[in-house]
Design a protein around this nucleic acid. Structure first.
Length: 457
RNA sequence: GGCGACGUAGCCAAGUGGUCCAAGGCAGAGGUUUGCAAAACCUCCAUUCGGCGGUUCGAAUCCGCCCGUCGCCUCCA
């Protein structure tokens, strides 16, 4: 397949360098509930993982948790918990949210605090090679020496000179130069800390991802993923550290960045406070609808969070569900051939994971299945392919579950018996009253030649 | 200020030189079906791709300018 890489700024043929595709995706900082921007990124890389497997590759995907940083410490102080407890709480919440979105777990979910020895080894190595230095002011901080790496800036398309023009770079006392960034941060009293050759402290944000990628996937990885907002400075720094430390280039063969979710015209972000949590979204909409909403636009473009538009996907997902599940009388002696649809799906998905077109192919197949059903053709094989392709996009095609407050299956069946009896007596007013009650309870019914069927909407 | 992305029907959104002068979803109109519905099916729904110029036999697709929206440059998926 072809994949776009931010580093080369073009689409190139993708093949893994080794037996399995190695993929590192930046995960969350466990300081707060996950928001729908995290859902977007997670769904995109979940689909990339699923699709690569569908194409026959083994995939090793690593997604980290940053479980120590300033925000977690601040949160812990605010909630009266330890930083470890705060991180654990939000890690578990992330897993629940992503499970409910049908995002498959990564092969590994390492946490920064479990990787301290590897991080320290990496920092030591960078110091030995002259790419890093302990702060001159004896603060116990260690910084990466940006000027030691002539290629710095190649991912984000910036030069060190341009960065120096930015007026908002803090000049910390121990730094040699403003663009230098922290690899190791000395801890303040009461903060979580680990012993190191430079005194007690904790890792900087960028180095942990370099260390975890190296530990779990090796010196060169096939795909490095994350949100576009991480391209600079996080990925730029990660790239510089990793290539300087290992001497191997490239650190990542493909840099894949998803576009950002916007809310009311602005990026959804922690600093702006315009967050909608994954749980909020799941309370209002099904996982299939949320995923379809994300996948109807290309992953590299921006996406506006719009609940009305997610709602329309609810109806669209129902269309797929019906096509996949309703049987045909299959008496025509003909059958719907799904092979061309599968081929077309692969063709469009091979082009930089074009999920909007992939979905369009799935809808075309659904349409063909419905036509075939009306004509009495055999559609079982086509329905199996519909489910197969939907699964590549992580769509379950599952019916909504009965809510505690609503009608149970038995309740519905009992009412339908009454309604059928009323209809056979041509008591349509009574029959329609039952139907209205069921519709109000979220039950759709359909009268067909073979009797009445129902489903939850 | 520097760097970058985008602007396609009522809404969302593919398509980046002819081989599709524009996919798919939602909404809408008419019809088939139905006791009436719902779902499904059939037909229709952008002579046009922000504006103005240019390149080309040919452009939504390339180039220039203009208008508008957004991102990164600071923690962020």
């Amino acid at each position: 397949m072809k994949l776009y890489s931010t580093l080369t700024r073009d689409k190139r043929d993708f093949e893994p360098a080794g037996d399995a595709v190695t993929m590192y995706v930046c995960g969350i900082t466990a300081s707060n509930s996950s928001h729908v921007g995290h859902a977007l990124s997670s769904v995109v890389f979940d689909v990339l993982h699923r699709y690569l497997e569908y194409r026959g590759y083994a995939v090793r995907r690593v997604q980290n948790f940053t479980d120590v940083d300033d925000k977690i410490i601040a949160r812990a102080n605010a909630e009266g918990l330890s930083p470890e407890e705060v991180a654990e709480k939000y890690v578990q919440e992330f897993f629940r949210d992503m499970d409910d979105l049908n995002v498959r777990r990564a092969t590994e979910h390492p946490r920064a605090t479990n990787e301290i020895p590897g991080i320290i080894r990496m920092i030591e190595g960078l110091i030995e090679k002259g790419n890093a230095y302990p702060a001159a002011d004896e603060s116990g901080n260690v910084y990466f020496r940006v000027h030691s790496n002539p290629e710095y800036g190649k991912l984000s398309g910036r030069t060190v000179e341009e960065l120096l023009e930015g007026v908002r770079i803090d000049v910390e006392p121990g730094k040699e130069a403003p663009p230098d960034f922290a690899l190791w941060k000395a801890s303040k009293p009461g903060e979580p800390s680990w012993d190191s050759p430079w005194g007690p402290g904790r890792p900087g944000w960028h180095i942990e991802c370099s260390a975890m990628a190296l530990e779990y996937l090796g010196e060169t990885i096939d795909i490095h993923g994350g949100g576009l907002d991480l391209a600079f400075p996080h990925h730029e720094n990660e790239l510089a550290q990793s290539e300087c430390f290992t001497g191997q280039k490239p650190f990542a063969r493909f840099w894949v960045h998803n576009g950002l979710l916007r809310l009311d015209g602005a990026k959804m972000s922690k600093s702006l406070g315009n967050l909608v949590t994954v749980r909020d979204a799941l309370d209002g909409y099904s996982a299939d609808a949320i995923r379809m909403y994300i996948l109807t636009s290309h992953y590299r473009g921006p996406l506006l969070y719009d609940e009305d538009n997610i709602g329309t996907q609810e109806r669209a997902s129902r269309r797929l569900r019906q096509a996949a599940n309703v049987a045909s009388r299959a008496d025509s002696g003909k059958s719907v051939d799904p092979a061309p649809f599968r081929e077309h799906f692969v063709e469009v998905m091979d082009d930089d994971l074009n999920t909007p077109q992939g979905l369009a192919v799935i809808f075309d197949l659904a349409h063909e299945i419905n036509r075939g059903r009306d004509a009495g053709h055999e559609i079982g094989a086509a329905q199996a392919v519909l489910r197969e392709l939907s699964d590549v996009l992580g769509l379950t095609l599952a019916e909504p579950e009965a809510s505690e407050a609503g009608l149970s299956d038995a309740d519905v069946e009992a009412r339908l018996v009454s309604r059928t009896e009323a209809r056979s007596n041509r008591e349509f007013a009574a029959a329609d009253a039952i139907r209205d009650e069921l519709i109000a309870a979220g039950i759709a019914i359909e009268d067909g030649p073979g009797g009445t069927t129902w489903s939850r909407v």
